[in-house]
């Protein structure tokens, strides 16, 4: 077992009688790792379990060679940015960072050097004396990353960090994560496929607590090869197509509609093969694993 990877074996977790994670087996290696899944798939449960915030029912988790049961050791090597991130609103950015630094057992000198450094990295140097409550959503998320990196963890767990951010902030945030992932494991949990596509090479797909896929983004995309088509149809036929195929995109222009769909075979003579993207492959994977079209947003 390598000291630079997270190994999860037969992980099970229940909330009362409801099984939240079911026999999850996963190896997460150095760099960015994306955890993709619908809302309620079990992503946050898995992330919280890795961050020692939830207790597993059974199975094994080893974080860089340390069993998850050794919570204090795990906390020393893990940084966590929760989905609903916030800090004491009345504290300034610097105060909040310093407080969390103390709780991370960092010395005074170390804090003095590292906090400005991290705030610079997340582009918050000019806001050190600003109160947390005065920060914008994007700034707060960047502060969240900075606090998670305070003690220079080997593993960074980031749960749904881009939800609610505007496109510019989202791109900036994704780039920041990629930089950070150069010298550690970064686990990014999201239901936004674009975030995964832009940042991760290795991913896993979770659905209803079960792991549907683990592998590279490339392999996932390749699995949808020859299954994605585009076709232009009269607008009145749209509903029939939606009922019969998995529609992943459509653009209506006048009385016609340009549809992107997934099908096992060419659906219409005039349909054209398309290069699949991660979203197509993800949707196909979910459908192949029994997720109904209606549950996939009603379009697929």
């Amino acid at each position: 077992m390598s000291g630079n990877e997270i190994v999860i074996r037969n992980l099970n977790k229940y909330y009362g009688k409801k099984q939240a994670l079911s026999d999850v087996n996963l190896v997460i290696k150095h760099g960015m790792f994306g955890l993709l899944g619908r809302n309620g798939a079990g992503k946050t449960t898995l992330m919280k379990t890795l961050a020692t915030l939830l207790n597993k029912k059974s199975g094994e988790i080893n974080v860089c060679g340390t069993p998850i049961e050794h919570a204090r050791e795990i906390r020393r090597m893990t940084g966590y940015l929760p989905q609903d991130f916030s800090m004491y609103p009345g504290m300034t950015v610097a105060e909040a960072m310093d407080y969390l630094g103390v709780l991370s057992d960092m010395g005074g000198v170390e804090r003095k050097l590292r906090i400005p450094d991290l705030l610079e990295k997340v582009n918050l140097t000019g806001h050190m004396k600003k109160k947390v409550k005065a920060l914008s959503g994007g700034m707060k998320r960047r502060l969240g990353i900075a606090q998670a990196l305070l003690h220079d963890p080997k593993v960074l767990i980031v749960d749904e960090p881009t939800a609610g951010l505007d496109p510019e902030e989202r791109i900036r945030f994704r780039n920041l994560l990629c930089e950070i992932a150069e010298d550690r494991i970064v686990i990014l949990s999201t239901h936004i496929v674009g975030d995964i596509e832009a940042t991760c090479e290795d991913i896993a797909i979770l659905n209803e607590g079960r792991l549907l896929y683990t592998g590279t983004v490339h392999d996932l995309t390749a699995s949808a090869k020859d299954k994605v088509f585009s076709v232009t149809v009269p607008r009145q036929n749209l509903q029939i197509i939606k009922d019969r195929y998995f529609v992943t995109g459509m653009l209506t222009t006048g009385s016609e509609c340009h549809v992107r769909l997934i099908a096992d075979q060419k659906p219409f003579p005039d349909a054209e093969f398309c290069e699949p993207n991660v979203e197509d492959a993800y949707m196909l994977y979910l459908h192949r694993n029994g997720v109904e079209k209606q549950k996939l947003g009603g379009e697929l």
């Binding site: 929760p82 991370s104 057992d105």
Partner: peptide, 13 residues
């Protein structure tokens, strides 16, 4: 303040 998880995951016992 929504700080529970941030504090829980710190090294401090």
């Amino acid at each position: 303040a929504g700080m529970l998880d941030l504090i829980y995951t710190r090294k401090a016992s």
